[in-house]
Amino acid sequence: APDVPRRIAFQSPCTLQHGQRLGGRVEALLRRAGFELLPVADGHLCCGAAGTYALTQPALSEPLRERKLDALLAGGPQLIATANIGCQMHLQARSSVPVRHWIELFDPR
């Protein structure tokens, strides 16, 4: 879609990387679709959402979110994309840029 930001940081959730072992697949699709994916330091680390972890362990969860956001925002993305609604909501609560599920980039209605 023409009005969708092209310069993005992708947050690969633990569910995708470790649970399903599909790390790199979404990134490859996004690159093939013409998105510029910025490098994200320590991309394998948790964002702090971890299911209910953000609700039940905020003292541990919030520093993880801040560390993840620092890494995601370091390259100056127009948008952060992820593949997990829990991560999306957790990151968006503190992000200075929009956080969206990656599939929304293909049909932003």
Results as ranks from 00 to 15, higher is better:
A1Y: 12
P2H: 13
D3V: 07
D3P: 04
D3C: 06
D3A: 14
V4F: 14
P5C: 03
R6M: 04
R6C: 06
R6I: 05
R7N: 09
A9F: 03
Q11N: 15
Q11V: 05
Q11S: 10
Q11C: 12
S12E: 15
S12W: 01
P13V: 02
C14G: 04
Q17Y: 00
Q17R: 12
H18Q: 11
G19D: 00
G19N: 06
G19A: 07
Q20L: 01
R21Q: 08
L22T: 05
G23F: 00
G24V: 01
V26A: 01
L29F: 06
L29R: 10
L30I: 01
R31H: 02
R31G: 04
R32W: 06
R32P: 03
A33P: 10
L38P: 02
L38R: 09
A41S: 09
D42R: 15
G43H: 12
G43K: 09
L45H: 13
C47K: 09
G51Y: 06
L55Q: 15
T56G: 06
T56K: 15
P58D: 14
P58F: 12
P58C: 13
A59L: 14
L60V: 11
L60Q: 15
S61E: 13
E62H: 13
P63V: 10
L64T: 12
R65E: 11
R65C: 15
E66C: 10
R67Q: 15
K68D: 09
K68F: 11
K68Y: 12
L69I: 07
L69H: 08
L69G: 07
L69E: 11
L69C: 11
D70L: 07
L72H: 05
L73R: 08
A74E: 14
G75R: 03
G75K: 08
G75V: 07
P77T: 06
L79R: 09
I80L: 02
A81S: 09
T82S: 08
T82K: 04
A83R: 03
N84W: 05
I85V: 13
I85P: 06
I85M: 05
Q88S: 09
Q88C: 09
H90V: 11
H90R: 11
L91S: 11
Q92F: 08
Q92H: 07
Q92K: 10
R94N: 03
V97F: 00
E104G: 05
E104M: 07
L105K: 08
F106A: 05
D107W: 09
D107I: 00
P108T: 06
R109V: 03
